[in-house]
């Protein structure tokens, strides 16, 4: 997609440059139509496709962990211990590894990706202009809906007696999936240096 988009942008630049050098092209009706395409339609298309490209790129795991403060969270995906929920999901492809962060942290609503992008921009502001929080926290906490998006309705989840007995409190988010004693080990970045690390292909 990058190649197509760059080609479209270059084509637009060439057309726009023609109007920069010779604005008299628009004296004829064909020139006016071409000007409308080059100075209005194509740039709008470039913005729309660029936005789509950036939104899709920000779903990638490697994009999330390209931020310095996220490096430790990226490393935590490789911890060789099944108790670590993100690592277990990532290593066993329970979420697509290329979009692992996005799969568990996005808000699965119509404007979810857009809201995530805005939250990302706010974090960039904190990183470069203000002071980033330490430790990093999720505003409003991690919601069960993000787990239940995949697990709800799955046989192993539904038939688990512990889950079945508290299903209402889980679906209503009254009790977190990450509650102590349940699935409480997620991104343990403070102890990451002591953890055994899984190396893919070994």
């Amino acid at each position: 997609m990058t190649g197509i988009l760059v080609a479209l942008i270059v084509l637009t630049i060439v057309l726009v440059a023609a109007f920069l050098v010779r604005p008299t092209i628009t004296a004829r009706i064909e020139g006016k139509i071409l000007a409308f395409a080059a100075l209005c339609v194509l740039p709008a298309l470039c913005i729309a496709m660029g936005m789509s490209f950036h939104m899709q790129r920000s779903e990638q795991t490697k994009f999330c962990i390209s931020c310095h403060s996220m490096e430790a969270y990226g490393k935590s995906l490789y911890i060789d211990d099944a108790k670590h929920i993100p690592a277990q999901h990532f290593q066993n492809h329970r979420v697509p590894p290329d979009t692992a962060c996005y799969s568990c942290h996005t808000d699965y609503t119509i404007f979810g990706p857009f809201k995530d992008k805005l939250a990302g921009v706010k974090r960039i502001y904190l990183q470069y202009v203000s002071t980033p929080p330490n430790p990093i926290t999720i505003p409003g906490g991690f919601k069960n809906a993000q787990c239940l998006h995949c697990h709800l309705g799955a046989r192993a989840f539904q038939e688990n007696p512990v889950h079945a007995s508290i299903m209402d409190t889980l679906t209503s988010n009254q009790m977190s999936c990450l509650t102590s004693g349940c699935h409480d080990t997620a991104h343990d970045v403070t102890n990451i240096s002591h953890e055994k690390v899984w190396k893919p292909g070994t």
Binding site: T2, I13, C46, I47, G50, H54, S66, C67, G120, V121
Partner: peptide, 16 residues
Amino acid sequence: LLVEIVSLLWFHPLSF
């Protein structure tokens, strides 16, 4: 458009 090309080729959180 030139800025957009740079942002597409630059893999960094600031590119957006």
